[in-house]
Nucleic acid binder design. Structure first.
Length: 299
DNA sequence: CCAGCTCGCCGTCAGGGGGA
DNA sequence: TCCCCCTGACGGCGAGCTGG
C-alpha cells in the first residue's frame, strides 16, 4: 500500500470506529441518562482524559494487520454506508439536543474576528478579502460581491456588485463587467467609479485587488451582459470558466467549513467517550457493590 | 545529513440530499 | 428538475520525527 492509500485506510478505519461509537450511543440507554453535571464533566475532561487521542487510535489501527485484510470492503457498499450518514451539523445538533451542555454547531458561522464592522452589518458573507488599499471585498452567498471602505460607516460604504450570471440584480445593485482574463493573467471585475477588482489567476490563495484600470476596456469584457445575451462561443467559454471559478471558490470555502465542523464533531465525540467510560466504570463498581450486598457469604 | 514515514491541511471531484 | 450545499475520497504538499 502506498503512502496515500495507507493514510486513507487509516482514515477509513477511524471513520468506521466513529460510526460504531455513534450507533452504540444512539441505541443505548446510557446516553439518555447523561446528566447536566456529567456534561459539565465532559467539557472539563476534554483533552485531558485517559482515552487515546485520534493519533493514538490511528497508530493502534495501523498496527493491526489482521484488520487490514478483513477491513477491505466493497467500495460500493462502503459508499452506500457513507452516503447514508447525516451531516456533522445534524449529528452534533441531535447530540446537543439530547445532552445539555454540548455546544451546537451554528447554522451559519459568523466570520467573527477580523471582520470589518461595516461588512458584518450585511448578510453573512461567504468570504472576505482585504485589498492592498485597505478596502474589503465580501463575496456573499449567491455570488454577490460587496466592497467596503474601512473609513465608511455601515451599509453606505458598500457597493453591491452583482455577478452577471446570477439572475436579475437586486434593485440598486450595480452591474459589474467581467473579463475572464486580462493581459497580465488576472481576472478583473469592473466596478463603477473607474475601479477594477482584479483576481490573481495564480497562487494558493485567491487574491483580489482594487486597481485603476490599465486600459479603457480590455477585449473580451462583457458590457453589463444579461444572462441571455451571451452568444459567441468565446463568451460562452468565458462564462463557463467564470462559473467554474466561482464554483471552485465556493467549494473551497465549503470544504474548509466542513473540516472545521468535523473537527468540532470529533472533539465532541471524544468528550462523550470519556464521559461514558467514567459512567461505565461507576456502574460496574455499583454492580459489584450490589452483588456483594445481595449475595451473602456462605462461609 | 538524509531518506522514509506520519500527520495535518488543502484543493478538487463526485455524488447525495434538500429546497425552490 | 435544477441548483446549491455538504461531505467522503483522493492526491499533493509541507512540517516534524526517527533511524541509519
Amino acid at each position: 500500500m502506498n503512502k496515500c492509500g495507507r493514510k486513507k485506510y487509516i482514515k477509513t478505519n477511524l471513520r468506521q470506529m466513529t460510526m460504531e461509537t455513534i450507533e452504540s450511543q444512539q441505541d443505548g440507554s446510557v446516553t439518555d441518562s447523561l446528566t447536566e453535571r456529567e456534561s459539565a464533566n465532559m467539557q472539563a475532561q476534554t483533552g485531558q482524559n485517559s482515552i487515546p487521542n485520534l493519533a493514538q487510535v490511528a497508530t493502534i489501527t495501523e498496527t493491526d494487520e489482521s484488520t487490514e485484510s478483513e477491513g477491505v470492503i466493497d467500495s460500493h457498499k462502503r459508499r452506500e454506508i457513507l452516503s447514508r450518514r447525516p451531516s456533522y451539523r445534524k449529528i452534533l445538533n441531535e447530540l446537543s439536543s439530547d445532552v445539555p451542555g454540548v455546544p451546537k454547531i451554528e447554522e451559519e458561522k459568523s466570520e467573527g474576528e477580523g471582520t470589518p464592522p461595516n461588512i458584518a452589518t450585511m448578510a453573512v458573507p461567504t468570504s472576505i478579502y482585504q485589498t492592498s488599499t485597505g478596502q474589503y471585498i465580501a463575496i456573499a452567498q449567491g455570488g454577490t460581491i460587496q466592497i467596503s471602505n474601512p473609513g465608511s460607516d455601515g451599509v453606505q460604504g458598500l457597493q453591491a456588485l452583482t455577478m452577471t450570471n446570477s439572475g436579475a440584480p437586486p434593485p440598486g445593485a450595480a452591474i459589474v463587467q467581467y473579463a475572464a482574463q486580462s493581459a497580465d493573467g488576472t481576472q478583473q471585475f469592473f466596478v463603477p467609479g473607474s475601479q477594477v477588482v482584479v483576481q490573481a489567476a495564480t497562487g494558493d490563495m485567491p487574491t483580489y485587488q482594487i486597481r485603476a484600470p490599465t486600459t479603457a476596456l480590455p477585449q473580451g469584457v462583457v458590457m453589463a451582459a444579461s444572462p441571455g445575451s451571451l452568444h459567441s462561443p468565446q463568451q460562452l467559454a468565458e462564462e463557463a470558466t467564470r462559473k467554474r471559478e466561482l464554483r471552485l471558490m465556493k467549494n473551497r470555502e465549503a470544504a474548509k467549513e466542513c473540516r472545521r465542523r468535523k473537527k468540532e464533531y470529533v472533539k465532541c465525540l471524544e468528550s462523550r467517550v470519556a464521559v461514558l467510560e467514567v459512567q461505565n466504570k461507576k456502574l460496574i463498581e455499583e454492580l459489584e457493590t450490589l452483588k456483594d450486598i445481595c449475595s451473602p457469604k456462605t462461609d
